[in-house]
Design a protein around this nucleic acid. Sequence first.
DNA 1: ATGAAAGCGCTAACAG
DNA 2: CTGTTAGCGCTTTCAT
Lengths: 337, 337
Amino acid sequence: MTRERPTLEAVARRAGVSRATVSRVVNGSTTVAVEIRDAVKLAVEELGYVPNQAARSLVTQRTESIALILPETANRVFSDDLFFPAIIRGVSMELDAADKQLVLMMAGSTASHDRVERYAMAGHVDGVMFASMHGSDPLPGTLSRLGIPVVCSGRPMTRTDHPVPYVDVDHIGGVVQAVRHLLAAGRRRIATIAGPPDMIAGVDRLTGYRTTLTEAGLSEHVAVGDFTRDSGMRAMHRLLAEDPDLDAVFAASDMMAHGALQALKDAGRRVPDDVAVIGFDDFEISRYSDPPLTTVRQPIVDMGRTMAKQMLGLVHGQPDVATSVVLPTQLVVRESA
Amino acid sequence: MTRERPTLEAVARRAGVSRATVSRVVNGSTTVAVEIRDAVKLAVEELGYVPNQAARSLVTQRTESIALILPETANRVFSDDLFFPAIIRGVSMELDAADKQLVLMMAGSTASHDRVERYAMAGHVDGVMFASMHGSDPLPGTLSRLGIPVVCSGRPMTRTDHPVPYVDVDHIGGVVQAVRHLLAAGRRRIATIAGPPDMIAGVDRLTGYRTTLTEAGLSEHVAVGDFTRDSGMRAMHRLLAEDPDLDAVFAASDMMAHGALQALKDAGRRVPDDVAVIGFDDFEISRYSDPPLTTVRQPIVDMGRTMAKQMLGLVHGQPDVATSVVLPTQLVVRESA
DNA sequence: ATGAAAGCGCTAACAG
DNA sequence: CTGTTAGCGCTTTCAT
């Protein structure tokens, strides 16, 4: 079955020219006589020639593909949390347009994290994008220091000696809008379900909640989740147990807000009559929840696009100065608050 | 910044041995003296040497990565339809365990379809898996004929001269269970929202509906969707317009069933009192819909895993005989029917 | 057990 | 405008 794949050499022989000429035609050089070019194209067609990418990469030092590394398990990336899909969608759009191949890599375990590191360092890709980073992963810095273009979505948690460009959203601005909305509606016992403390999205959103509440002279009620629906549900139960008279909750993700909705229903609370709920993300399903969710919209797809654009700039050797970007967020009011 | 990456040569010099020896150590050959091996490992460590994958592939003809091609736009793959994530999850599990790199490729447009074809033919990957195939895409056959290992999830629609192994689920068995459940509950005006006629999942599920209804001596009510929530909603409106007295509907996907639920609510019908609804997939969100959805469970993650296992077998040169597999489906009864 | 040498298939100067 | 030539970095006989 394994038919021999034709090489440049074969095409050259068939067309009666040199390998170099075939290479020129294949790579679209304009300095080739029309008739020769056509003869070569014919030979390519007849033989079904496709350039060997390994050979090409070996000499050009480029692969035309770019990695997106998600330091999460596949289970998490492809759960019902639509954050990852949205990032990927945005990235895909830009990379598609630039005819670059996206290589998606999940790195939720130590083993896969190592594999991904080797993969990137082996020159398998021309650049590496990160999303959903936890703690202070040294990998972005490491790769960047090796000269591999790197962009992160989400501001890195620790400033390193070798800063990496990033794109993020205005977490705090959005949360402030949300909490003020609750305050304006007369809510006074406002809790939050925070995201994981090892992620910038978790930290910043909690900060937004805290500062706004402090400004208003109110006390905090914090339960920590991990952005999943389940964790949101459990956190809500905890909050309710600690203070049964809560009248509002800001959840740092839509999925956690959905979990909270469920928990409140289980506890016999009406939303928003007894307890107002606000999420963060504005996923499509939040329009269909019961009741539809008031939430902070963040432009996740745009984050992906922007990150990909920056990456393309880096790969194409454009100035890599001050490329970090922060996109706006915005409260979307529906029936839950 | 672009620090030179060390080569075999550099490591060899530093360790005071030949390139061949370093290569042996790096590739875990046992026929190397312990002290030399250690010296080489030290040099590798000190220099931060990582083998150049392009060079390696050029000679080994293998890349240690495997593609999953989804002939859909990224928009569709990463929508709220959880079919794709589930497939990917299953595939990832197996590939991770085998330390192979998954390369995810969306090919929803002609341009990207071509790009993907070139990519695979350029020897960028050791094998190619397909999911969510439409019509009679010649690509699987083409690649297979070129000697590239290929496995499909979903039975190919047309038998070719060059059959490709596949893994699929028992669509018809599941639908028969679903429709019989409706019949047993006394439903007599049973409609269906069918999937796209160019996909095997669309065709088979419609067949299951038709044969069961015919057996029962009932007449058909068919509206066609494309598996999306929106198409399900529109189809339901059409069905209702044609026959306002429908008392049940089988939707060929959970997303379409969710759309139907919405449409029925809009039309003032109660579910299941006025109209029973059954879906197909058993996504997690179907447990949270209003009312929770009765649906046919299909083991999508297992499909992915099974497909990946077959692929690994092929890549490792195991016998590729009779590798096609059909996994069971099962009705899960909740409140919507 | 180790080294020398021959490419894998391609691109990129450099001549002509 | 086209051909010749020299590698890219690695694995793998084949000697030793």
